Simulated assay, not measured.
Amino acid sequence: GHERFECVAAIILSVMLFLTASIIGYSAIKNLFTTNNEIHFGIFAIIIAIISIVTKEAMYWYTKINADRINSNALLADAWHHRSDAFSSIGSLIGVIGFYYGYYILDCIAGIIICICICKVAFDIFNDAINKMIDHACSEEFENELITLIKKQEGILGIDDFKTRMFGNKIYVDIEIKVAGDDSLQHAHLIAHKTHDAIENIYPIVKHCNIHVNPGK
């Protein structure tokens, strides 16, 4: 059951993302009514903001690529933490530019938009993690791909039963295949074994595939 720790971590990180977004949104709304027109920024503030944006965005893409590679929701949430920092820096940059040109409200508008974007991402990550916690079936598209692969295997006459379930970020598959009734036990086992290997080799996300053999006519 250790795969579920991945979901727990993703849920915790999504809540942290939501809190981060809330702080950004609260500050933006607060500044909307308390903007200090006497604040002045130098070119140094713009340089720091740009460096922060580039660095955090690079960290986002590095983490996201690895999250996609290992199918990790927790790592994806961590990647969005980096991007939320980049968004905050973008808001700061917009605010600095706005102050230069007298558009003091730009900082507040940027903060509110960033808050909404991060909240949307936090909700999507949270929802996906919850779905993976409750052992729901895989998507219809993925199931159809598996069924097509199974039917292509030599010696299989049909599929009597087929079930999939998500367990954390892994997939478990239970199948009942139909083979010739007069086939030998050894050959029937070989068909099931080859089908098992084909599924797990082509789809690494499938952690375990259980195949039961039924005699056909």
Rank of each mutant, 00 (worst) to 15 (best):
E3Y: 06
E3Q: 10
R4C: 03
C7K: 02
V8M: 15
A9P: 00
A9F: 04
I11R: 03
L13E: 10
V15T: 10
T20I: 06
A21I: 00
A21C: 03
I23Q: 11
I23V: 13
I23M: 14
I24R: 07
G25K: 01
Y26L: 13
A28E: 04
K30R: 15
N31K: 11
N36M: 04
H40F: 09
F41W: 07
F44H: 12
A45V: 11
A45G: 10
I47A: 12
I48C: 10
A49T: 08
I51Q: 12
I51E: 13
S52G: 15
S52M: 13
I53M: 15
I53Q: 14
I53H: 09
T55C: 14
T55H: 11
K56L: 03
A58Y: 07
Y60K: 15
Y60N: 13
Y60I: 12
W61Y: 15
T63G: 11
A67F: 04
D68Y: 13
I70P: 01
N71M: 08
S72G: 06
S72K: 03
A74Q: 06
L75R: 04
L76H: 04
A77K: 02
A79H: 04
W80Y: 13
H82I: 04
H82Y: 03
S88N: 13
S88I: 07
I90A: 07
S92M: 13
I94H: 06
G95I: 05
V96G: 07
Y100V: 05
Y101Q: 04
G102W: 10
G102Y: 10
Y103P: 04
Y104T: 09
Y104L: 09
Y104C: 05
L106F: 12
L106W: 14
D107C: 09
A110H: 03
A110Q: 02
G111F: 01
G111T: 00
I112K: 07
I113Q: 00
F126G: 01
N127W: 13
M133R: 05
M133C: 14
M133E: 11
S139P: 14
E140H: 13
E143Y: 00
N144H: 08
I147K: 14
L149M: 07
L149E: 00
I150V: 11
I150F: 09
E154M: 02
G155Q: 04
G155S: 01
L157M: 06
I159L: 02
D160Q: 12
D160R: 11
K163I: 10
T164Y: 08
R165H: 10
F167K: 09
N169H: 08
K170M: 13
I171V: 15
E176S: 15
I177V: 10
K178P: 07
K178M: 12
K178H: 09
A180F: 14
G181V: 10
Q186V: 15
A188G: 13
A192C: 04
A192I: 02
A192M: 05
K194C: 01
T195C: 14
H196V: 06
P204F: 00
P204L: 03
V206A: 02
C209K: 03
N210Q: 11
I211R: 04
V213L: 00
N214Q: 14
